[in-house]
Design a binder for these strands. Structure first.
Lengths: 152, 152
DNA sequence: AAAATTTATTATGCACGCATAATAAATTGA
DNA sequence: TCAATTTATTATGCGTGCATAATAAATTTT
C-alpha cells in the first residue's frame, strides 16, 4: 500500500466506501447520494435547499438533479420559499422519513466500525492529513509556480 | 473538520483532488482518468489490458469505455493479443506519449507537495487508516451482524 | 473430444458530480 | 428609481465508475 500514490489511496478508499454505501442503499431501493441528502434535510421543518450544498460539500447545481429525482420518487416535496421568490424549501414525505432512518443506520454503523478499529490519535491524524490536502488544493499552491510541461 | 463523519472527509477530499486533476488535465485537452490510464500503460511495449484494472484499482468493464475513448482521440491503439484470442494489447501513440508526460508531471507534483507538507509518520498513519477502512469493507464486517432497520 | 466453466472484452444503463448556460428573483449602486 | 450585479435554481452535457448482460475465446472437467 505504501508504494501507492496518495491520490491512488484516496481514490480507491473512497470508491470502496461509495460502493459499500450503494450496495447497502440498494437493499431499501435507495442510493448513497439520496441517503446523504435525506440525512441533510431536517425531518421536522422546511429545509432551504441553499443549506444543503455547503452541508454536503457539493455544488448546488449537483444537488438540483438529485432533488428532482428524489421528488419524483416521492421522498421529498419542493415548495416555494415564501421569504425568497427564488428559493425552495424541502420537506420530507413520510416515505422519505422512513428511508432516512435506514440511511442513518448505515452511516452510523460504518462510522462506529471505523472508530472501534482505529485508535483515536490515528483517526485525528487522518483528519489532519485530509485537511492539509484540502488546504494545499484550495490555496492553489501545487501547480502555480510555472507549469512544467517536460516530456518523460 | 473533526465533527464531520469519516465518509464525509474521504468523499470531499477525494472530490477536491479529482477536481484539481481534471482542471489540470483540461489545460492539455485531457481528463483525470485518461491521465491515470496513460500512466499505467508501458510506453515501450504492448500492455495487456488485463493488467490495467488491477493496477488502477478499477473494474475491467470500467476501463473498456475509457480505452475506447482514448483510442478515438488517438492516444492509444488496441491490437489483438497474439497469445490470447480474447485479449487486447494497448500501445501508446506518439500523441499518447506526449500527453502521458504532462499527466506524469501533474501526478508527481501533487504527490511531492503532499509529502513536503505532511510529516512522514503522519502520512504513514494516513495510509494505515485507509488500509483499515478497506479491510473492514472487504471483509464485510460492518453490516453483517443482522441488519438493523430501526427508524429514527 | 465434447461439454461445462472461466476469462477477456464490449455494450448499455444508471448513479454521481462538475461545468456551463439560461432564467428569474433579490440586492446593490448610480 | 432604474440599471447592474449577485444569488437561487434548473437544464444539459460530459466524465468517471459500477452492474448487468452478451459474446467469444480459453481452460477445465468428464
Amino acid at each position: 500500500m505504501k508504494d501507492k500514490t496518495i491520490d491512488y489511496v484516496l481514490r480507491t478508499t473512497w470508491l470502496a466506501v461509495q460502493k459499500m454505501y450503494n450496495e447497502e442503499a440498494s437493499k431499501f431501493e435507495s442510493t448513497m447520494a439520496t441517503g446523504f441528502t435525506l440525512l441533510s434535510i431536517d425531518p421536522e421543518e422546511g429545509t432551504p435547499s441553499t443549506s444543503l450544498g455547503p452541508k454536503m460539500g457539493m455544488e448546488a447545481t449537483s444537488l438540483s438533479r438529485i432533488l428532482k429525482t428524489m421528488e419524483t420518487r416521492g421522498l421529498i416535496e419542493r415548495k416555494p420559499n415564501p421569504e425568497d421568490g427564488r428559493g425552495v424549501l424541502i420537506y420530507l414525505t413520510d416515505f422519505g422519513k422512513e428511508k432516512r432512518g435506514y440511511s442513518r443506520d448505515r452511516v452510523l454503523k460504518f462510522n462506529e466500525a471505523i472508530r472501534k478499529n482505529v485508535p483515536i490519535d490515528k483517526l485525528i491524524t487522518f483528519y489532519e492529513v485530509a485537511d492539509t490536502i484540502n488546504d494545499l488544493i484550495s490555496n492553489k499552491k501545487i501547480y502555480t509556480n510555472e507549469v512544467n510541461n517536460t516530456k518523460y
